[in-house]
Nucleic acid binder design. Structure first.
Lengths: 256, 256
DNA sequence: CGTTTGTTTGACGTTACTCAAATCTCGTGG
DNA sequence: CCACGAGATTTGAGTAACGTCAAACAAACG
């Protein structure tokens, strides 16, 4: 009976239940491992385009990879991020996207062999389900992100981000336990992600503080004083109304 | 030898090459068809939540389905849209998303049986590839959308939308041929999609007109006067600089 | 400890939202 | 085919929010 490959032993993709490699039969794991490349990335490091040509599929074992686009003036925007457990298949991705993958934290990834990946997708039902659900959840997250951010102002965006990120990482006690929230990456990056300026982040945090929802202990450490208040702020839209399906029903009534 | 089901004969999902049903072996097609439900939707009609409980997977044969969220004040936001050929799997989707699916144009969809879909995904390689690529492209489109829109002002967003939509439908001569662009849905919906107010859409179009990029013939009919100019406006970001990877390379040089 | 990088604060300008009203479009029924 | 009316778009004026620039301040790093 073949052994678990050394490089997989400590990898979250294999160790955490529900992650892609955890459901593979040992021989598939060995075969995949032999053709794959685990890598560590420092914060700010980008995934090289040449690596993506040969290994366009990456599994994220730990950390956060952002799709970060730079403008000529130095401003950037972070369109999305991928988190631990995500399987990111960049075959057929728009060319620019591949130059934009940046580690927002210290990150561990594994470049997966496309041919072996396809083989596993054909043969292993559980792996297929996990990869499919991962890709689904990437789409859903993006949709939620746009739906929530597009009509919100700075303080609401911040509140939404804090709530959403805690929810996304609810399995990771490090960032979610207790009333303390640690900003997962730099404020500059957060600003790029929320589509606002770093200065506005700062002012927005102060604003939430004045309302009594949070307290900023240090630059990246936030104490959540009133979870409910924070949630209700997060759900507000531009005009201060609470978001709901109420108006939708109202329109249906009008029409009938 | 079994016959092609009647309801599939005129359906784009079967007729257009590269669409999901076109690659199915006849017997799979028959089996899927028997458990599936083709439906037509009028503009503004929503996909019923109860239908989604039983058929959470829909194939879009024709038209545009938007994820439209309403706020209590009547404003909405359209986070995403799905177009012909997309396979949308809503199993595991956030609950609210399912109440938000609205036809932005006259639309033909087909509710697909999940069990049969899974079976096909296991057995038919081509179908698996097509469904996977469709889901991939949904994610990529969302990422592009956020990357492009987050740091753009109203006129640039409009220009981007026109260019992008023509590209997305480049296979459909109806909307892309010649210098005439027909807004695919109402300006109110476009405003919701671009995250701005209807008034701003109007002013933005006027602005593009004054620059000589387009001419608004009727409310929904736009003549593209200068494609290159329009493109270059679409690529501009908030501060008027052209977007590029130039700064990225600059930072890499600094670091080394 | 000094340098670099990131965050905060303030003053000012611009954009886009808000509200209100006029005008236009298009589907409907006569 | 035309007239009507609801819904959609346009226009204008006033205002709030955010971007921009510049400089002080704090934190992280070797």
């Amino acid at each position: 009976m073949p052994e678990i490959p050394k490089s997989c032993r400590g990898c979250a993709l294999y160790c955490r239940t529900g992650f892609f490699c955890s459901v593979l039969p040992t021989e598939s794991l060995v075969a995949l491992s032999e053709l794959s490349r685990p890598r560590s990335l420092k914060i700010g490091e980008t995934i090289s385009e040449t690596a993506l040509e040969m290994w366009p599929i990456i599994g994220i074992a730990d950390g956060i990879i952002g799709v970060k686009r730079f403008q000529s003036n130095g401003n950037g925007s972070i369109a999305a991020f991928f988190v631990a457990g995500d399987i990111v298949d960049l075959r057929g991705a728009p060319a620019r996207m591949c130059s934009d993958l940046t580690a927002l934290t210290e990150t561990k990834v594994c470049y997966l062999s496309p041919s072996m990946f396809d083989e596993i997708m054909a043969s292993c039902k559980d792996a297929r389900r996990i990869a499919w659900e991962s890709l689904q959840s990437q789409t859903f997250r993006m949709i939620e992100q746009v739906a929530e951010l597009s009509k919100k102002r700075a303080p609401e965006r911040l509140a939404w981000f804090i709530c959403e990120f805690r929810r996304l990482h609810s399995t990771n006690p490090d960032t979610t336990r207790g009333p303390i929230f640690r900003l997962p990456f730099r404020q500059v990056d957060l600003a790029d992600y929320l589509g606002i300026q770093p200065e506005t982040i700062s002012r927005g945090l102060r604003h939430l503080e004045q309302q009594g929802a949070i307290r900023v202990l240090k630059a990246k450490i936030i104490e959540i004083v009133d979870q409910d208040l924070l949630m209700s702020i997060a759900m507000r839209s531009q005009d201060g109304e609470l978001a709901s399906a109420a108006k939708h029903r109202f329109r249906v009534l009008q029409a009938s």
